[in-house]
């Protein structure tokens, strides 16, 4: 079936079998391998992309269903101005370890901030509860999304806020032992 899809601002025209999953189309046909696959039951969310701005699990959408839509993947976050604030924040706050869940987490974070410029910890945790991470215990993902929100607000009014280093390492007690 013939489809046209705008992915990260670039229009693609293609002929695809109806059963091809959007995740698979992005990864193998377009080579956008930043979108990952982690389960068979629509549970893990590592395949999340934005479809007309809304997060969807691309393993549970057929590519043909995305005909005539705008898709944003992790590869589309960076712009001519450089890294997106959410990308900077994930690095700054150590919001990733193995990086497998990270593209999805950043896209969900971006969509959240667009709806709610100042999400509190509970709101962030709720918003990312369709996305699993096995590495970080979510602590620094939450911090990163909130830091990106602060940065986004900052560019509008308060000035840059990204160097809010709430993850300064905990104080320690030292004792040399022989």
């Amino acid at each position: 079936m013939e489809i046209t899809m705008t992915v990260n601002g670039v229009a693609h025209k293609d002929d695809v079998e109806p059963r091809v999953l959007l995740a698979d189309y992005l990864r193998t046909r377009l080579g956008l391998t930043g979108t990952h696959i982690g389960c068979d039951t629509t549970s893990c969310g590592v395949c999340t992309v934005l479809m007309d701005g809304t997060p969807v699990k691309s393993c549970t959408v057929f590519a043909v269903q995305a005909d005539d839509t705008e898709i944003t993947t992790v590869e589309g976050l960076k712009s001519a101005d450089g890294l997106h604030p959410i990308q900077k924040a994930f690095k700054q706050e150590h919001g990733l370890q193995c990086g497998f869940c990270t593209p999805a987490m950043m896209l969900v974070g971006k969509a959240l901030i667009e709806q709610n410029p100042d999400p509190d910890e509970d709101e962030v945790r709720w918003a990312i509860s369709g996305n699993l991470c096995r590495c970080t215990g979510y602590v620094n993902i939450v911090k990163a999304i909130r830091a990106a929100a602060a940065e986004s607000r900052g560019t509008a009014d308060e000035g840059p806020a990204l160097v809010d280093l709430t993850n300064e390492p905990s104080p320690t007690v030292s004792a040399p032992v022989g």
Binding site: T42, T48, P55, V56, V108, I128, S129, G130
Partner: peptide
């Protein structure tokens, strides 16, 4: 119902 991303669809 389900999770926030599934609820979008």
């Amino acid at each position: 119902i389900a999770d926030p991303i599934v609820r979008n669809r």
